[in-house]
Design a protein around this nucleic acid. Structure first.
Lengths: 141, 141
DNA sequence: TATTGTTATACTCTATAACTATA
DNA sequence: TATAGTTATAGAGTATAACAATA
């Protein structure tokens, strides 16, 4: 990384970020979801996160989560569930409809990704996934 | 990739995407820029892109570029420059102030990134950059 | 007192449709 | 006719500040 000039490094990351964003957008909008909604559904699938946890995961202010959940709840994709231990907290659960749509999004995204990386070696694909996983932890920490 | 379930794969990519987004946001907002504005400035630095090219790079509708450029132009960071060959086209150039702010953003982003990846091996950092570059091309194609 | 979620507000981002100017 | 950029519009995402309920 020291051998790369700063602007080149940033351009690489910005470029990858925007292409990923494009893929999220192209995959989620035909399903009637914004990219942010699709991402929130993915996070909600296994976690049943609180509003504060979602704000942390999505890196946005907690006030945004209210509206985001409102719109998904109005469509019957998620429900608010009061936390049993701490009555200040509300947890977000997927409904069966939300679970189904989340899986459809994941399948569509996976198909698009697989098709675009079809020329990659198995080793490179494995490396990419390993490094992304590791980088996510590093950036989060 | 075949050995990973779809939801795990998507969660990895969504996770990395959101962490990158968080880093963009944390780096750009103290400079008075939205993440999208910072990203546009990075693309504009070497390309002098047309509005249509920017729409392609940012994966958004061309109508969004008008407002994005309007706001940056009002702050004196970019200027519209008519294309010499095709008078329908307008190209976006950085002003000296825009160039300076873009470099400040790049430096801040690079510092944050370097500090978070400080425990990584040089080989892993090099691999990450190589794979991101390659993946960007694959996703774009 | 501190934390969780909400409301009110203002601004930005985004897509769709209809338009003007140029090719 | 087709393309590049603009305008109008509506909806969604975002941050800040002030608030109510709970811990």
């Amino acid at each position: 990384m020291a051998s790369t000039s700063e602007d080149e490094l940033i351009e690489t990351i910005v470029g990858f970020f925007r292409e990923t964003d494009g893929l999220f957008s192209a995959t989620s909008r035909p399903l009637g979801l914004t990219p942010q909604q699709a991402q929130m559904l993915c996070f909600t699938q296994h976690l049943q996160p609180s509003f504060g946890e979602l704000a942390g995961l999505l890196h946005c202010d907690k006030t945004n989560i209210t509206g985001l959940v409102d719109r998904l709840e109005k469509r019957g994709l998620v429900i608010r569930q009061p936390d049993a231990q701490d009555r200040r907290m509300t947890r977000v659960h997927l409904t069966p409809e939300g679970e189904e749509l989340t899986k459809r999004f994941q399948h569509a995204f996976n198909s698009a990704l697989t098709s675009r990386l079809r020329d990659w070696t198995a080793a490179d694909r494995k490396d990419l996934l390993r490094l992304l996983r590791s980088a996510t932890t590093a950036l989060r920490g």
